[in-house]
Design a binder for these strands. Structure first.
Lengths: 336, 336
DNA sequence: TTGTATGCGTTATCAT
DNA sequence: ATGATAACGCATACAA
């Protein structure tokens, strides 16, 4: 059927071993021989058989990306960062999500990883996630994105700082009754939401402000959830004058709720998010921008580097990327 | 190192051939034998070597998805539909984009496809795209998503109808000066934008309304582009009373431009989009919803089916999925 | 129903 | 610098 390395070897009058060395750029090949082989391979339209190469070498040349969601802004943006790197590195990107769009669970990814990829990139799975632990138990080169686990390489922002910056911004504007739209009620340690909440608490405490449990609501990182959470905050006896939403999408939902109540963000209630979502500028939302694309890019670069330098000890501490507050119209000084 | 089929065979007291058959669910295996082999394989924690299996069988069990963008709503949503199917089918999903986030081009995907995947899914590349033709020239099972080419299997909506529905809605509201925000000035045939424009023209013509070239602007399917396009429409001597944007994201940009001019969608100017973008409800945008997730899902299902039924002739005509107009606040009757 | 044996296309070791 | 050849782990045609 297809052209094999033997065909190239025969046409070049050399052995398959030499062809293999020449085409892979290994040393100890006469430059004239190499060029001739390369030319012949091109002429014959030869393409290597990945299966055979993988079987013989033991390396797959591919990396799996595991993510809970594909179609959400944060995850698809991270994914694009990862893809650009793997593309340049000539590695295959195997995509697998661990939850359906309907939120149902699916088959665990771990069995589909063994003998199939050289490394794994995991986006946004909380440290206590069962699927994540299965993956980690495989003990293959792995890097986490957007979350930090002790002893596991990762790339993330400092979520405590992010939460603090967002909250401090509201405090600086004179707000004292500050609500927070969290992810889920049950906050597991080491998650982004937990850290962001700690940053919130720290900023409040430093300013001598109380953290009122009544001013905490849960938006599950979705627009609809943010809307419900904001509604809950607005319908109580003493609503906050400012709200910190832990993600832009929840902030969007909060905006919707405000609109339903005839309130205008930045005029009636100040609102700040975290993400730097594409639509945040459009909606004039003040937000703590995180370099989402770079999160994926840098994690992928680190993993590729690790795979190419065997034996080298990899740093298991997190790589922290900076965030930046972008002030827009959704926040303003507290009215007297 | 790892457990091989031979280890399982030895432990079960059978040949590797029987193990191979038993584990793959092939017929002509004693059920007792099969169960025993399955149990032993599980006990031994045996996982098949994909490389070896692929080399021996000639099938890779993987499908490539080629897309111009990963982080945009439409593409990531299609991708999630594809992924859910391939996951269930037990096939690997190789993701490769053909343009960087900065819009630069990159290495052609075709060479990275040969001998590497069993089939290809292409999202949104126009029929005259060079990369697309390289892929098609490979003559492997391929399906297009969101675009139609004669002789190539595809899944798409009827873009002519979509454009017509959107425009007709505006006409029904009494609008006569209707602007259109197109993709790019140079309209290639068989593209979605071309079809949508034809639908626009048809609706206008049917209603006896003129198609004014001055009321056409280009938004390149981005928010920023939509904003510029709308600005161009608004700053001319005789602005339209209604605008048809060929995508929701361009409509979002159009909304932004309107806001800058002190105009309110649905009050001062009616605006309709196409997509059913996540944010369209939030922004109260009237839009022609297309089943984006299903586009990916159905294309993937068809391709998997084709790969599993060798020799069967595949229909090369497009599978058309229905669209639906959702009327929201961004459109209203023309004011006298 | 099960076993035997060959081939799949490369890589890598060891010679030369 | 190059060649010969043994793995690599499985699928499958053919036998039994």
């Amino acid at each position: 059927m297809a052209i094999t390395i033997k065909d190239v070897a025969d046409a070049a009058g050399v052995s398959t071993a030499t062809v293999s060395r020449a085409l892979r750029g290994l040393p100890n090949v006469d430059s004239a021989t190499r060029e001739r082989i390369q030319r012949i391979a091109t002429d014959l339209d030869y393409v290597i058989s990945p299966s055979a190469s993988r079987l013989a070498s033991g390396r797959t040349g591919s990396i799996a990306v595991i993510t809970p969601y594909i179609a959400r802004w944060y995850f698809s943006t991270v994914l694009s960062g990862v893809e650009s790197v793997l593309q340049s590195a000539g590695m295959d990107l195997l995509l697998m999500s661990v939850s359906t769009p309907e939120g149902q669970h699916r088959l665990p990814p771990a069995p589909r990883l063994r003998r199939r990829v050289d490394g794994v990139l995991v986006i946004g799975l909380p440290p206590q996630d069962a699927q994540l632990h299965e993956v980690l138990s495989l003990r293959m080169p792995t890097s986490l994105i957007g979350l930090v686990m002790p002893g596991v390489p990762s790339v993330a922002i400092d979520d405590v700082v992010a939460g603090q910056i967002a909250t401090q911004h509201l405090i600086n504007l004179g707000h004292e009754r500050i609500g927070v739209i969290n992810g889920a009620p049950i906050m597991s340690p080491y998650t982004a939401e937990n850290d962001r909440f700690r940053g919130f608490e720290a900023a409040m405490t430093d300013a001598g402000l109380p953290v009122d449990p009544m001013l905490e609501a849960y938006g599950y990182f979705t627009i609809a959830g943010g809307e419900q959470a904001m509604t809950a905050l607005l319908t109580q006896k003493n609503p906050p004058t400012a709200v910190f939403a832990m993600s832009d999408e929840m902030a969007f939902g909060a905006m919707k709720a405000m609109r339903s109540h005839g309130l205008v963000p930045g005029r009636d209630i100040s609102l700040v998010g975290i993400d730097g979502h594409d639509m945040s500028e459009f909606l004039d939302l003040t937000t703590v921008v995180q370099p989402v694309h770079d999160l994926g890019r840098i994690a992928a670069e680190a993993l590729v580097l690790q795979l190419r330098s065997p034996g080298v000890e990899v740093p298991t501490d997190a790589i922290r990327l900076p965030t930046q507050l972008i002030v827009r119209g959704s926040t303003s000084p507290k009215r007297a």
